[in-house]
Nucleic acid binder design. Structure first.
Length: 524
RNA sequence: GGGCCUGUAGCUCAGUCUGGCAGAGCAUCGGCCUUUUAAGCCGAGGGUCGCGGGUUCAAUUCCCGUCGGGCCCGCCA
């Protein structure tokens, strides 16, 4: 097997379990970035690979909703400032539609996973602590906290946990989790002594100002359910408690994972899960999105311009290399899905047999191992973008026009459903309206060109036939001593904003001569 | 201070794991609808695979070094 998820599954399956669980952590402290669904999609791919081998598997989405809020996200209400340092599951939902801030955020991610077609079992971190799921592993960690602290120190040089328990208590007075220091573990009572005397630096991303959050000074005694393990041991703890066989992770938490792998072995006496390491995504420009609207690049944004398949492709294709990802990449991935599909259905050949196998398997995973029976619609995304550019949403019979132009130009002749086409048109339309960089190049017109355009605009409404319109354009150009080539270029620029396009007559008769006439008049 | 990714055609990148004539898309150029710009088709040009060494019959691929681009960790979660 040559696909990474299959290789990973082969490794995992040697562990001989009844049920193989894959896992990913879900951040719940901010609006999820498109990269955040990657963990889930990758873990789910491994679950599919395991099931494909006939063993049961499930994917657990573990929400880190007991993590504290460290900064107020851009555009969020100011009252959140006073909640900095508290677990996100105890902070009110600023949108008032969920029971907490944390629940709101993780619901966004779960919604995205759902839309992408990932099946998962949800586990709230807060619940896992509160209902005792993690009791045993917390006790085990705390009983060995000195040793754990030593491991952390040796691996990272961090001295903090030589002196304090790897456990963040939620202060019973002020409710903050990042300002406490747990200094004593009383095994026989299963109690933790702590003091709320720490400082940490949060931030308000709106103002950019740094906020120092201080503890309230409270001293208290906490139970093992009144806080959470620190990340450096928590992963290992939940791997054990939930019996996790696989977890992917990004470069940002590489250190934590290394430590946890070690902790898993030394403290919890389990084999750490099989991992898949991936590089992070970086954003280049972000297009218009972030600039004008202050939007972050969420999975939902991706899914408004691209299909679930395209997003899966992004996440599954390659793990190990840094990728630039922004909205401009979406059309490329849409087209790549089509090209994988072509190869899968044998419409296009790859000479390298190995590569062909890889591509076919990749396509299967892009469909989450449910490839369609028929190839269906293949259409270049940019083609739809161009069409969408000249057929605004308000045009009557928009879908019929799209279809007609595409059919007539022979771009779609395979079997496909209207639904399929409609969906792709919608993606491209959203793309044109929101994501495309408007390249408003001024058309500099010479006098003859201007008068030729005016003349054309006057005559156009009298015509309906594409061929005759084509003829009209040509004659108009000649009458005004404009080179036809130049005139067509000008015309395309005025009508659809590019230098070239489909046969002009067909195009104009499709869009409607009256409409085009108005567009020309407006432009000159 | 520690670590990761990356450098291949004008541009964006495959290919490197598993060594075997250097690839795609876009762009460029030429040709093709009886006069025109054809979201199409056919064809062409274009690369010292960052640089220097090593291993090998053979290196873009493996090893060592080096230079450039970028990122993560070094608070915490």
């Amino acid at each position: 097997m040559i696909f990474w998820a299959d290789k990973t599954a082969e490794k995992i399956i040697r562990r001989e379990k009844k049920l193989y669980r894959t896992e990913c952590g879900l951040g719940a402290s901010g609006i999820p970035h498109v990269g955040s669904v990657g963990d889930g999609i990758r873990a789910y791919a491994v679950t599919l690979a395991l099931e494909d081998r006939g063993v049961p598997s499930e994917f657990v989405a573990f929400s880190d909703d007991r993590d504290g809020l460290r900064k107020v996200p851009r555009g969020f209400p100011a009252f959140l400032e006073e909640h900095i340092g508290r677990p996100v599951s105890t902070i009110p939902d600023p949108f008032e539609c969920h029971t907490s801030y944390g629940e709101h955020m993780s619901s966004l991610l779960l919604d995205a996973l759902d839309k992408v077609g990932v099946r998962f079992v949800f586990q709230s971190g807060t619940m896992a602590y509160e209902d005792g799921t993690l009791d045993d592993v917390v006790v085990e960690a705390l009983n060995n906290w000195k040793e754990a602290g030593q491991i952390i120190f040796e691996m990272t040089g961090q001295k903090k946990y030589l002196e304090q328990l790897p456990f963040n208590v939620i202060c019973s007075e002020c409710g903050k989790i990042y300002t406490t220091r747990a200094y004593e573990w009383i095994p026989e009572k299963k109690k933790i002594l702590y003091v709320c005397d720490q400082e940490f630096k949060g931030a308000d991303s709106k103002t950019g100002k740094e906020l120092t959050v201080s503890g309230c000074g409270h001293r208290g005694e906490a139970s093992i359910r009144d806080g959470k393990l620190t990340w450096k041991v928590e992963f290992a703890a939940r791997w054990k408690a939930l019996d996790i066989s696989f977890e992917a992770f990004g470069k940002d938490i590489l250190d934590s994972v290394r430590v946890n792998d070690h902790i898993a072995k030394e403290i919890f006496h389990i084999r750490h899960p099989v991992h898949a390491f991936y590089e992070l995504f970086i954003e280049r420009g972000g297009g218009r999105i972030s600039k004008s609207k202050g939007n972050v690049f969420t999975p939902q944004v991706w899914l408004s311009y691209g299909s679930p398949e395209s997003l899966r492709l992004l996440m599954l294709k390659r793990l190990g290399t840094t990728r630039v990802v922004d909205v401009e990449e979406i059309p490329k991935f849409m087209n790549e899905v089509d090209s994988l599909k072509k190869i899968f259905f044998g419409k296009e050949k790859i000479t390298n047999e190995r590569e062909e196998q890889h591509v076919r398997r990749l396509y299967e995973y892009v469909t989450f191992l449910h490839p369609p029976d028929h190839m269906g619609l293949l259409i270049n995304y940019y083609t739809l973008v161009q069409l969408a550019r000249m057929l605004p949403k308000t045009v009557e019979n928009r879908f019929a026009l799209f279809k007609d132009i595409l059919m007539r130009s022979g771009l779609i002749d395979e079997e496909f459903s209207d639904e399929e086409l409609c969906q792709k048109i919608e993606y491209a339309t959203n793309w044109v309206e929101e994501a495309e960089e408007a390249e408003e190049e001024e058309v500099s017109l010479s006098e003859p060109e201007r008068s030729a355009l005016r003349r054309l605009a006057e005559k156009l409404p009298e015509y309906t036939d594409g061929e005759q319109i084509q003829e009209l354009i040509f004659l108009t150009a000649q009458e005004h001593q404009v080179k036809p080539g130049r005139f067509f270029q000008v015309l395309y620029r005025v009508v659809i904003g590019t230098d070239r396009g489909p046969r002009a007559g067909t195009l104009i008769s499709g869009v409607g001569p009256q409409r085009v006439s108005e567009m020309i008049m407006k432009a000159i």
